[in-house]
Each structure stands twice: as structure tokens, then as C-alpha cells.
Write a protein that binds this DNA or RNA. Sequence first.
DNA 1: CAGAATCCCCTCAGATACTG
DNA 2: CAGTATCTGAGGGGATTCTG
Lengths: 119, 119
Amino acid sequence: MQDECTVNQTVKYLGRKWTLLIILELYKGDGYTRRFTEVKERLPGITAKVLSARLKELEEEGLVEKKIEAGSVPIRSEYTLTGSGLEMVEVIKGIKQWALRWKVENIACGAQDCRSCVL
Amino acid sequence: MQDECTVNQTVKYLGRKWTLLIILELYKGDGYTRRFTEVKERLPGITAKVLSARLKELEEEGLVEKKIEAGSVPIRSEYTLTGSGLEMVEVIKGIKQWALRWKVENIACGAQDCRSCVL
DNA sequence: CAGAATCCCCTCAGATACTG
DNA sequence: CAGTATCTGAGGGGATTCTG
């Protein structure tokens, strides 16, 4: 049916590794905006290739807007959450709430700096 | 690690193809319960192998409970949503709402990214 | 700084066949 | 009925190197 396709289609790119975390990172930025390297530094383990690919997907899907500062050397580019991206954050919050409630083994986050508790 | 791992960990299995649709199918069943073949018939295109694997994952993650009717020939097994599975349905509803609002081409106004046509 | 280009391994998921 | 076994192709994602 139609709506089921919608879910599968959406999850197809949202379900990829790093995607939701990237969205959260932009959300935490000033004006829901972050630069490439900023996101990269805050997501330990992600490679430039993957980050670049995920951002391009999100841009194509309309959740993220990209701006390149003209005439800047070295290049500076910014990624900003769009309206749909912002609403996706609410969905992600739901996922985090669910995980925190039902996946109790996440005690490790209490020992460290845990942002999910702030969210 | 921290909260980000929670999201990545959760999405790791929830993001797989068919998973959310399977959860929705159980949700639609009487008492949030469906039998193997029932789910299979209602999800055109899914194979027994994949359905079996997804159900096993969901069982291990605690979203689904499996019951085998003793002494029944042929075998009958039932899959029921647990408490956490039911709450996950709410998350999925959020995803569907998001997708319907931002992704489904709206016939009425002919525009994608239409916020005013809410289902 | 913000990527693009390669290489390569590994997993996912489809197709098919078989079984208690 | 409710799965399991096996093979296969496609593609995701990590590591590394290069560049405007």
C-alpha cells in the first residue's frame, strides 16, 4: 500500500548509519547550522566520505540546506536544517526517548557527558 | 560510549528493510498478534527468510514475543507486540506523519513539501 | 577546509530449494 | 505451516590517498 511504501522509502536513507546523528548535530548548532568539519569533529569515527555522502542525501531529500560562502579561501560551507529537518528532530527525540526507556543498558551514558538527557 | 550510540544502535536493526512494516502489521492484528504466514501475506514481496530474520531480531530486542502453540500440527506460531513494541508504534506513527507531510506528493495542491495538507 | 577518488571487505536481502 | 540452507549480486561503509 501507499503509506507502507512511504515508511520504507523514508527509512531507506534515514536508517543509514550516522544519518540521524548528523541531523542531531546540525540541530545543536547555532541556527541549526554547522560546518563540515564541525560535524566531523563532533562525530568521532565518521569519515569525510561518509559524512559527505549523508549530507548530500539529506540535501536531496530536503532536510538540509547547503550554503557555500562565496570567495572564501579556504572554502567554508554550511549546512542548515530545513523545516522538514527540524520536524525530523522531533521524531529522533521520540526514538531516543524510547531507547532510554527500554534499553536500560545505556547506563554508560550517565557516566559520561550525555546529551540525550538534555534533549 | 554515549547517547549517540543509543540512536545508532537502535537504528541499526530498526532501519533495516521491512522491520517497521512488520511491527505495523503486528499492531494491526487482534491483540497486536499475528501469525507468520499472516504477516507474510500482508507484506507482498517479503521472503520467508527475511521475515524470519527480522522477527528473530525483534524478539531478541524485546519488541516482539513469540509463542508456539504446543501440540499443533501443522505448527502454529504467534508473534505479539510487547510493551516496548507498542511504544515503538508511536514512533513509527511519527515517521509516517512526517513522511505524509513532507514527502508524499499531495494531489490537492500538486506540491511536494506541502505543510497545509495534513492527513 | 571540504571534499572526491579508489580500493576492498562485509552485510543485507532476493531467489531458490528443502524440511519437520 | 513455519521455517532453514545455500548461493549470489548489490551496495554500504571503513581506510587511505589526493586536491582545488
